[in-house]
Structures are given as C-alpha cells and as structure tokens.
Amino acid sequence: MPFNTPANLTAHDDAAAEQKRAQEFTLKAGLAQNLKGGVIMDVINAEQARIAEEAGAVAVMALERVPADIRKDGGVARMSDPKMIKEIQAAVTIPVMAKVRIGHPVEAQILQHIGIDYIDESEVLTPADDVHHIDKHAFKVPYVCGCRNLGEALRRINEGAAMIRTKGEAGTGNVVEAVRHARQLFQDIRRAQTMTPDELYNFAKEIGAPYDLLKQTAKLGRLPVVTFSAGGVATPADAALMMQLGMDGVFVGSGIFKSGDPMKRAKAIVQAVTHFNDPKVLAEVSEDLGEAMVGINIDTLPESQKFAKRGW
C-alpha cells in the first residue's frame, strides 16, 4: 500500500509502474499459493531430487550441502554451483528453488538467469551483508525469506519477499525452534489485532515493521503472503505439528536425506502435511520409518553456530 500522494503535487506519475509491480507480485505470490499444503525438500543432486518428486514434494530446494553438513563442515557456505542446480532442474518437473546468501544480489542474478523458480535468501548460508537484505522487488523471480517474529517477516515482505518461512534452526533435526518462531509470529499477529490505531503505530516502531503492512496483517489475522515452516522438522508428526500451529506448508531440509529410509520418510511427511488433522493417517504413516536424523539439542549449540539469528 503506497502512500497516497495528493494528485499533481509533483510532475511525477508512476501509476503504470505501480500496476506492473502489482501484477508481478501477483505472479510471485501466486506460485507460493499453489505450493500450499505441500512439502518442499532440500536435495543435493539429481538423484535426491527424483526421490523427492516421487515422494510427492511440491518443490525442491537445490543446494550443495544440507544444513546439517554445513553445520558439521563449518567455513563459509555460499550459493551452489549453477551446474549442479541445472542438473536438478533437468531431472524434475516440479519447481526448483535455490539459496543465496543474505544481501548477495549477484548470486540472485545468477540464479534468475539460469531460470530458478524461487530464491531463498537464507540464513543457512553465510551472510554477505550484515546490514542489508536484497531489494527483492528488483527481480522477476520470487523470493522466500526466513523470520523469527512478525517484525522480521514484515521487513522481508516490504523488501519484496512473496513468501515467508519461519526459520527454526536448520540442520538440527530439532523442531523446538520452528515451534518457537511459529508461536512468536502468531502471538505477535494476535497482539496486533487487539491494538487501537495509536497503539499500532507504536507497535510498528517497536518491532521495526512498516506500518501499512502491519495494519494489513492485523486486519487479515495472518501474514499477507503464504507462510511455511522450516528448520528442524524430522518426522511426520513434526510436520503435522507445524500445520496444526497454522502454517501453510513445510520445508524439510536435512530431516529426509539424513534419515535411514529417505523415500519412505519423505512420502510419510507429504501425507502428514495433507492429513495433518487426521490422527489415523498420522499413525499409519509414522510406522516403521527407520532411523530418524539423530538431531542436536539446541542448548548445546554454541551461539556462534545458531543460524536463526542471522538476518536483520
């Protein structure tokens, strides 16, 4: 919602540009609407991408190392090799997403050029800019960004993100942070809904959110874009939990291909997201899945290794 400048106060006229931007945003946000109720899976090669597609993933996230390995290996994590991303694009017909570093528009330009369907400006990679995020309106390709709370979500949407995911703590196989961020986001929204207009102006300032977007969110009772969960989902029950908390869908990173039987687990998580309110289905698909990802207790994770705090 742009500010309503009085007519002809200046010679400036950007009605056409505004309309074009609105149309582009409809297409960006619309793809995310089509992904709702689905599972997006991290994959590191064409073979894994095929497994994900056969399991019923609605999209794959192409990356060189899953978050659990990024965590283990240490060092700087960057955009994946475009050659590897192209191999994944060639292997599947579902949308292919890929990650860029926070504040690295050049990595994003490269991904847009090779025809990636969605870009994740992700805290899982090492940030390239410790102040700024990418101006996502400047791209034709849509973006998904992470958040821990409402202020962070609305800053990303203001920058042009057409889809939001809660961050959780990627590569831990521990759902506690995903739950924390989902609860925080929804609590913030419920608080905003109870506020008078004068309180809302102050709340916008407190959480560092653009007022217009905050007002819109309070009116809708949800974020104004599709909102997925990410970071720590390892079982069908975890995925259904995030859906019951109010998420539109689920990203699963290390949880699938770091488990004993990826195909079986991936299928089970897909079923769990569709039938998240049906304990009978959840019980059936949770049976005999083999070993889950081992997982890490967040308490034992040094502050320097927490990905979720990256993003400003």
């Binding site: 992904l35 109720g37 993933a57 299928k267």
Partner: peptide, 15 residues
Amino acid sequence: PGGESTAMALVAERS
C-alpha cells in the same frame, strides 16, 4: 485447484 499436479496425483493415490 491449482497446485503441483504430480504431488496431488501421488497424494490422491496414497490417500
């Protein structure tokens, strides 16, 4: 509805 037809077909079958 719109969505991913592959995913929808697989979920329909398994459901």
